[in-house]
Design a protein around this nucleic acid. Structure first.
Lengths: 203, 203
DNA sequence: CCCCTCACTTGACAGTGTCAAGCCGGACGG
DNA sequence: CCGTCCGGCTTGACACTGTCAAGTGAGGGG
């Protein structure tokens, strides 16, 4: 494949991770790659196409991490718990990419079918994990959807708040980040579990 | 007070709500206000100062909505539930402002003490509501903090995912947005309640 | 040998945020 | 009443951005 194409992607990624998506400059990217300011246009339609590609790769990386959790041994609850942790870890490990992945107004991912497909892939892992954990004769599919939404919201919110430092300035002051993540996910896992099993009373 | 100052704020708000924060243009704002492109600089230090002011006002509006829920009658669980709904409603009602409120890389709110104070005010409402709902002889302050984080994460995540359309494209296809919000918050309320009361087994 | 294609460069245009002056009317001290 | 100051606004300029248009030049097939 083209060498410059990968160089442009790498430079763009580095740039948005260090200065934020808003300050991504195609000309700066070209400068770092040692080419003219128009060279990137022979590999991407424009600025949005570059970040769309980064988003697509981000979603497939996230999917892989979630699928790794899915393949882990143990009970369904444990796998769901592992996936939640993987989600948060991915967000903290790739802050800028994670942010733009869920921000359609910065880069319209609907224009990039690859990105949309990768997003769907990640979501379907969550659906499977929740189903495996919560499905039963007494839970309707609709209820399963609500539980899925609840899980995604909780984990996504935790990742987002940690990323933006909102939690660090408040609850984080009294607890290390890692401990806060673990205890929050544990507590949530127990609480959600009560929806389907009779009372495992938390400590 | 200065007339132009409010005009600039109003025009900026309208602009970011219709085109996104990234496309906020001071010159366009000045154009809409009918003044020269430098006039806003006599009321704000720069672009960031304008959105910082909008963020500060957003946080106080959110605080007021949460405090209204806090003043509602009924049990603590009901008030917490109302506050959660108010949080989501605020996000959906002021999309662009909500986004920038929790995105420090777009506008450094730490430079604006008023915005930080307003944010703390909103957070303290949540702390009080969670404490009122979950405090007891068997729950340590640390655990209370974890439960607070869990609540904030869940509600914030739900609001964020709805705002970005991620949920609409997935779970939302099978359920109206309002019903999804209500059922998700209800389910979460029941699940969290199980952390402190013995088994109210959900339907 | 010619020509064509493809990766890339050069040039230009409109738009941006922001620094540096200039203008101008109204308040204020004498 | 006059001069001076000053705050609100304007005009001008600079460096920077994304993107359209045209040119360049090397490598390969007819």
């Amino acid at each position: 494949m083209s060498d410059l194409r990968e160089q442009v992607l790498a430079a763009s990624l580095a740039l948005i991770e260090e200065r934020g998506v808003g300050s991504l400059s195609l000309r700066e990217v070209a400068r770092r790659a040692g080419v003219s300011h128009q060279a990137p246009y022979h590999h991407f339609a424009g600025k949005e196409a570059i970040v769309a590609e980064l988003v697509a790769r981000g979603f497939t990386r996230l999917s892989e991490m979630l699928e790794a959790a899915e393949r882990a041994r143990g009970e369904p609850a444990r796998r769901l718990r592992l996936a939640a942790r993987a989600y948060v870890d991915f967000a903290l490990g790739n802050p800028a990419v994670f942010r733009v992945m869920f921000r359609p107004e910065l880069a319209d991912l609907s224009a990039c079918p690859a990105a949309a497909a990768a997003g769907t892939r990640a979501y379907s892992v969550l659906v499977r994990l929740v189903e495996e954990r919560f499905a039963g004769p007494r839970v309707s599919p609709e209820r399963l959807g609500v539980i899925t939404t609840m899980h995604w919201s909780m984990v996504h919110g935790l990742a987002t708040l940690l990323l933006d430092g909102s939690l660090g300035k408040r609850a984080g002051s009294a607890m290390a980040a890692d401990a806060l993540i673990e205890r929050t996910l544990d507590t949530f896992s127990i609480a959600a579990g009560s929806l389907v099993t009779p009372t495992p009373r938390a400590s």
